[in-house]
Simulated assay, not measured.
Amino acid sequence: MEHVFHESNQSFYWKVDSLDTQVLEPLGPHEKYSPCVPLEICFEVSKNYSYFDSDLSEDGTLTLVHQSEVQVRSYKSKIINASWLQTRNAYVRSYLYRVLSFLKIHEDVHSDIVQTIIDRGIRIRNLDSKKGPKVLRLRVGIKIYHNQIRCEDCSKQRELERDALIKEMLKRVKVVADADDVNEDERGRGRKRQTVVRESEVCPICLEKFVVGSEDVTSMPCTHMFHENCIWRWFKQSHLNCPICRFEMFIELGSQGEGDIGI
């Protein structure tokens, strides 16, 4: 069964770390020293997905089925003068808000993240040595937690839709005796599927012979034939391909709704 998950809640965690100060190369004889100390900010955004079964465990908590994490975006920004964190605070805040919006971080947490960046930036600027030109550096790690809960009804509906599409792709095959004559149309030519099969042939899955008069034989679009029960058992194991040639059964069930993830 293809499980369908709906998002139950979304939460954020962020951490602002000070990186090593980058000391610039000594100025050349014709270069002018700038009193400005730039602040370089590296944003790293990752998403953590936790998938839970809809059935509660004995202690009343949801059962974790699967968990994954992926880094979705990284971005470097620079504030020309670290002193702007205090002297041009409103400008810095507006700029950082735009960066967070670009990174698709929910606006409910913008204010807290920006305040953390400003506080840490002021701290490292005050603590850092004033000797020589340099660039102060911060790393802002933002993790977005998505909790997904399996929906039993949607999962069953998705399976019914998938099975209906598979049935449309399969074709009934007639089993005939070895002595019977079969015309060219029934044998199938080129890419046309064969509509008959000899009783001496066997199902590639169970290795049993096809029985004359049986209606339990079907052909896939790739023309390979199986007992209907055998090929459906194969499909139920999530193998949506032909056991012989690996022909893929491309099943399009439409786009999932926002927050729905099938695995």
Rank of each mutant, 00 (worst) to 15 (best):
H3P: 15
G141K: 12
S34I: 09
C242A: 03
F52W: 15
R198V: 02
G28F: 10
F210V: 08
E58V: 12
Y91I: 09
R198T: 04
H3M: 14
L207S: 13
M169L: 12
S238N: 15
V140R: 08
N9P: 03
E107A: 00
H224M: 08
L27P: 00
K76A: 05
E69T: 14
Q148E: 13
L39K: 13
G121I: 13
S219T: 09
N48G: 11
C222M: 07
F43G: 04
Q157Y: 14
V175Y: 07
D185E: 02
H30G: 02
K78W: 04
L165M: 10
S8L: 07
S46T: 15
N126S: 05
M225N: 03
V23G: 02
D181V: 04
H66Q: 12
G60L: 07
V65F: 09
T218Y: 01
I149T: 08
S238Q: 11
E107H: 01
K134L: 07
I144A: 00
Q115A: 13
Y33T: 11
L253N: 07
N229H: 11
V211L: 06
I144F: 01
S74A: 06
G190V: 00
R158C: 04
N147K: 01
Y95W: 02
T61C: 09
T63R: 15
L62F: 11
E184K: 01
S238H: 11
R189V: 03
S155P: 14
V16S: 07
V182C: 02
Y75R: 05
L127D: 15
H110T: 02
S8F: 03
E44N: 14
D20R: 13
R73I: 01
Q86Y: 14
R120Q: 13
G188C: 01
D53S: 15
E58R: 14
E44M: 08
T223M: 02
R98V: 08
L85M: 11
N183K: 00
V92K: 12
R88W: 10
L56D: 15
Q237K: 15
V211S: 08
G254D: 11
K78N: 06
S50Q: 12
I79C: 00
F43D: 06
P35N: 07
H239Y: 13
V109S: 02
S11W: 06
H224D: 06
S111A: 04
S74Y: 05
R139I: 01
G259Y: 10
W234E: 04
E258P: 06
V99M: 05
R123T: 12
R172S: 09
E58M: 09
T116K: 11
A164F: 02
D128S: 15
L103S: 01
R158P: 02
Y75Q: 03
Y91C: 04
I124L: 06
